[in-house]
Design a protein around this nucleic acid. Structure first.
Length: 615
RNA sequence: GCCGACAUAGCUCAGUUGGCUAGAGCAGCUGAUUUGUAAUCAGCAGGCCCGGGGUUCGAAUCCUCGUGUCGGCACCA
């Protein structure tokens, strides 16, 4: 297919902005010189088109920045999942308020409709050209070969491999979204550059849809909803990263805990509990003192140093040590809603997603090497049961042996294969994170995506050969020989804090009946109906449901509205009619319907809804 | 920890270039009203303007040091 060389912007919109050749996006500048033919890419919102558009928008932004900040030097400006960014440096401070100015400048450049030209020069020439930009020079250090391409639009030139739009006039619908600091090369030892993020689309509608979607996501932010629904709070005087659970959050959490408790008992786990602080000597034995001490909190009691636990393994090991064990006893499974403290860096704290004190649904399985696979399968199954109950999309990653590791290769191979087999047998997809395992063993991480697309690790399943060895754990084998057990460290929700945060965003606060802080809102029509409301409320408690009576001295409409705003799953209105007929008038939030039920059927319905979920 | 921004009533937010007694809506309290499915009316109360220090005749407002929060980066056993 021949390529046209349009003479005005409108023609570009009609014609291709780039072509796709052997799955590679080739811009017109490159195609013109190389004569490639291929599938046309038009300016639309396809991934290929957006890739080109956003890359060029990043350049346009750099052009605007250069024009506003004369001493600006530029590092890299790639296209990423959520748009694009450019890292740069200037002597002036760039804040959020400056984004509008930069956008304005970008638009005024775009109006000039500069052609984006491409030419190649030798590396030496490039180094001469960018000799005043030490950031660009450091980019060049990493480029192999001795020729580089330069893209030029108006006076602005940038070292770049492309692909780019043919003309900057095509860039119209974009927005600079955030300004941030970022370490050069992603390494905290390096200097900090200014990074501006932006987004661009082919048309106005797509940009608007994107911005609306972001605004929607913001509404379901668990920090906002947690505040509105009074689930939890943080207070400056209490300290950063230490959540306070309010009654509504406490009820929700208690429901989750009790469901999960039963689920563990069904699978043969025994509840145990270790102390909150253990002597530092134990942390030295486990290796945490040496390797992770800077993330732990320590205190002295009678001149003996104690470490507040950052995990529950050691406590469970002490449970294991309390008895002699036979191979016949294994697997042994201990679980605990273990409160742990970790010194997270201030900048890492984020609502309930990242805190300094949290409760893990933690368990340790002590088993024989032969049992690893079946135990993994059981845990993966457990995870899937819970994730599918909540309709979560989740992703699993198997992390393999890292550089720094303990245990011999053979054991690593067996355990890594055990993880892979378990996944394959369940036909569960997974990704491999090569070398991303813990130093004591490979692991499977379960990641859930939040309302704005960020991935958060929740559950984890880790094979541990290190701690059993360090603590010299053993059991008696068939021939009465001493054998070292294998330890599987696992958490399914990960932590109640993070999981409830994600649940809140997932349901936008509209929790399903079985987990909701309050199951039913009761609205008596008039004062004379309050007794019946109380009666109903008591009956609900008897079947394990929480309710709230809205009997304030307000209009009925107002109280229905208030009840609705609490996001309670079901509202029942009761008045003379209901009392006389022993019925309730139901308003179901999910189905948006109103209907009547006899009191008996209503209670049965609630009971069914609460009990229909088991993990 | 790093870069940038922010912190005013329980909540959401006004508060001009430093200058009157720091305001509003919602929530709360009191009264009237007793309501049939998303806001009844009236009144009242509510503030160490995040904390310490400074500049100034005068600071919610300017400077400084903390604390906390937000957006990223780095970190996340």
């Amino acid at each position: 297919m021949a390529l046209c060389h349009p003479t005005n912007i409108e023609d570009y919109i009609l014609n291709a902005i780039a072509i796709k050749h052997n799955d590679q996006i080739i811009d017109l500048q490159t195609a013109a010189e190389m004569g490639f033919e291929g599938e046309q890419i038009h300016l639309d919102n396809s991934p290929e088109s957006l890739e080109v558009l956003r890359h060029s928008t990043a350049h346009l932004m750099a052009q605007a920045i250069k024009s506003l900040y004369k001493d600006a030097e530029f590092y890299v400006g790639p296209v990423v999942k959520e748009g694009f960014y450019y890292d740069f440096k200037t002597s002036e401070t760039v804040g959020e308020a400056d984004l509008k100015n930069i956008e304005k400048e970008m638009l005024s450049f775009a109006k000039k409709k500069y052609e984006i030209e491409k030419y190649e020069i030798s590396m030496d020439e490039a180094k001469e050209k960018f000799k005043n930009d030490h950031l660009k020079l450091s980019v060049m250090e990493r480029i192999p070969g001795d020729r580089v391409s330069i893209y030029k639009q108006g006076e602005f030139e940038d070292l770049c491999r492309g692909p780019h739009l043919p003309n900057i006039g095509l860039i119209r619908y974009f927005k600079l979204t955030k300004v941030a600091g970022a370490y050069l090369g992603g390494d905290s030892k390096n200097e900090v550059l200014t990074r501006i993020y932006g987004i661009a689309f082919a048309d106005k509608e797509a940009l608007k849809a994107y911005l609306d979607q972001m605004a929607e996501a913001e509404k379901r932010d668990h920090r906002k909803l947690g505040n509105e629904m009074k689930l939890f709070t943080f207070r400056e005087e209490v300290g950063a990263g230490f959540p306070i659970w309010l009654p509504a959050g406490g009820r929700l959490r208690a429901r989750l805990e009790s469901l999960l408790f039963k689920a563990h008992r069904k699978r043969g786990y025994e509840p145990v509990r270790g102390p909150e602080m253990l002597r530092s000597d134990l942390w030295k034995t486990s290796g945490h003192y040496q390797n992770y001490g800077e993330n732990m909190y320590f205190t002295n009691i009678d001149e003996i140093e104690f470490g507040v636990k950052p995990m529950n393994c050691v406590g469970h090991i002490k449970v294991y040590e309390e008895d002699l064990h036979s191979y016949r006893d294994l697997p042994l499974k201990y679980f605990e809603y273990g409160v742990v403290h970790r010194h997270e860096m201030t900048g890492a704290l984020h609502g309930l997603f990242r805190v300094r004190e949290f409760t893990q649904d933690d368990a340790h399985i002590f088993c024989t090497a032969d049992q690893i696979e079946e135990q993994i399968i059981e845990v993966v199954d457990f995870v899937d049961k819970i994730m599918s109950t909540f309709e979560f999309d989740y992703k699993m990653m198997i992390s393999t042996k890292p550089e720094k590791a303990v245990g011999d290769d053979k054991v690593w191979e067996i355990s890594t294969n055990a993880l892979k087999n378990a996944m394959d047998k369940n036909k569960l997809p997974y990704e491999i994170d090569e070398g991303g395992g813990a130093f004591y063993g490979p692991k499977i991480d379960i990641k859930i995506t939040d309302a704005i697309g960020r991935e958060w690790q929740c559950g984890t399943i880790q094979l541990d050969f290190n701690l059993p060895q360090r603590f010299e754990l053993e059991y008696n084998g068939e021939g009465n020989e001493k054998i070292q057990p294998v330890m599987i460290h696992r958490a399914i929700l990960g932590s109640f804090e993070r999981f409830i945060g994600i649940l809140t965003e997932h349901y936008a606060g509209e929790f399903p009946m079985f987990i909701a802080p309050t199951q039913v809102a009761i609205v008596p029509v008039a004062e004379s109906h309050k007794d019946y409301a109380k009666e109903l409320s008591d009956k609900l408690i008897d079947i394990g449901a929480d309710s709230e009576i809205f009997a304030k001295n307000d209009s009925l409409n107002k109280r229905v509205r208030t009840a609705e705003k609490t996001r309670v799953p079901m509202i029942v209105v009761i008045g003379d009619e209901e009392i006389q007929n022993k019925t309730v008038a139901i308003r179901d939030r999910r189905s948006r319907e109103q209907y009547n039920l006899s009191q008996e059927d209503f209670l049965k319905l609630i009971q069914t809804k609460i009990n229909e979920v088991n993990f």
